[in-house]
Simulated assay, not measured.
Amino acid sequence: MKKVIKIISVLTIVVLISAFTMNTSNDSQGYQVGDVATDFKLKNIDGNMVSLADFNDAKGFIVIFTCNTCPYAVAYEDRVEALNKKYADQGYPVIAIMPNNTDVKPGDNFEAMQARAKAKGFTFPYLLDEGQKIYPQYGATKTPHVYLLQKTKKGNEVMYIGAIDDNYQDASAVSKKYVENAVDALLSGKDIEEKQTRAIGCSIKV
């Protein structure tokens, strides 16, 4: 009898642990295509707080989790700037967010972000995810990691998730411009052919 009770107790614990693990896993996945992204308010490199609601005329947003120190992110800096120059006036501005723990990566701290943005001439907001509260909501895991949002009746709907293009090493050798293709599709009222790709980059430092 004692052995039966012990087995039942063990099974109960296993079931509870499994249930907790399953829930935790699902919660950590972040947004999927079709989900509505909640707004945020994060500090920009100019010291001002920025939220999506500030962009009244925007049709959507190219939200990119990126940083100063990751070689992949650095390789994409000029392309991110080009995306903003091409699409901001068409209603899809770039909103860059730095998600790393700056204690682990001091090269990504606020002062370093300011210096990098000035050196590169960024024309887009470069926001600090202080306390690392926003990137887990999105489910971002890499730098860079893109979330293309479109303003719809439901809210800021996620339309594309993943990489900027298919060649981080050489911009001239890119054959698929995932983000550009997705934004162009939205602007022309067409369906996005590739709605999700695998983000290539450094892991976000926690």
Results as ranks from 00 to 15, higher is better:
residue 76 Y to S: 11
residue 82 A to K: 14
residue 93 P to E: 08
residue 52 L to S: 00
residue 136 P to Q: 07
residue 70 C to M: 11
residue 140 A to V: 06
residue 114 Q to T: 12
residue 135 Y to N: 09
residue 85 K to Y: 10
residue 73 A to V: 07
residue 50 V to N: 00
residue 124 F to I: 04
residue 61 F to N: 07
residue 53 A to C: 01
residue 54 D to Q: 09
residue 70 C to Q: 03
residue 108 D to M: 12
residue 126 Y to F: 14
residue 93 P to I: 05
residue 86 K to T: 15
residue 139 G to W: 00
residue 109 N to W: 04
residue 117 A to Y: 00
residue 51 S to Y: 01
residue 120 K to T: 02
residue 103 D to F: 11
residue 102 T to F: 03
residue 53 A to E: 08
residue 85 K to F: 08
residue 115 A to D: 13
residue 125 P to E: 04
residue 135 Y to D: 03
residue 127 L to N: 00
residue 71 P to Y: 08
residue 62 I to H: 03
residue 47 G to Y: 04
residue 89 D to E: 15
residue 110 F to R: 10
residue 104 V to K: 15
residue 90 Q to D: 13
residue 61 F to M: 06
residue 86 K to V: 05
residue 80 V to W: 02
residue 71 P to G: 09
residue 91 G to Q: 09
residue 47 G to H: 08
residue 109 N to F: 04
residue 61 F to R: 04
residue 115 A to F: 07
residue 94 V to W: 08
residue 102 T to W: 01
residue 74 V to D: 10
residue 111 E to N: 13
residue 108 D to I: 08
residue 122 F to N: 11
residue 99 P to F: 02
residue 68 N to V: 09
residue 53 A to P: 03
residue 119 A to P: 02
residue 62 I to C: 08
residue 81 E to K: 15
residue 132 Q to T: 06
residue 93 P to V: 06
residue 108 D to R: 10
residue 95 I to V: 15
residue 61 F to T: 01
residue 137 Q to W: 02
residue 100 N to G: 03
residue 52 L to D: 00
residue 133 K to Q: 13
residue 57 D to T: 13
residue 116 R to I: 05
residue 82 A to S: 15
residue 117 A to K: 03
residue 91 G to Y: 02
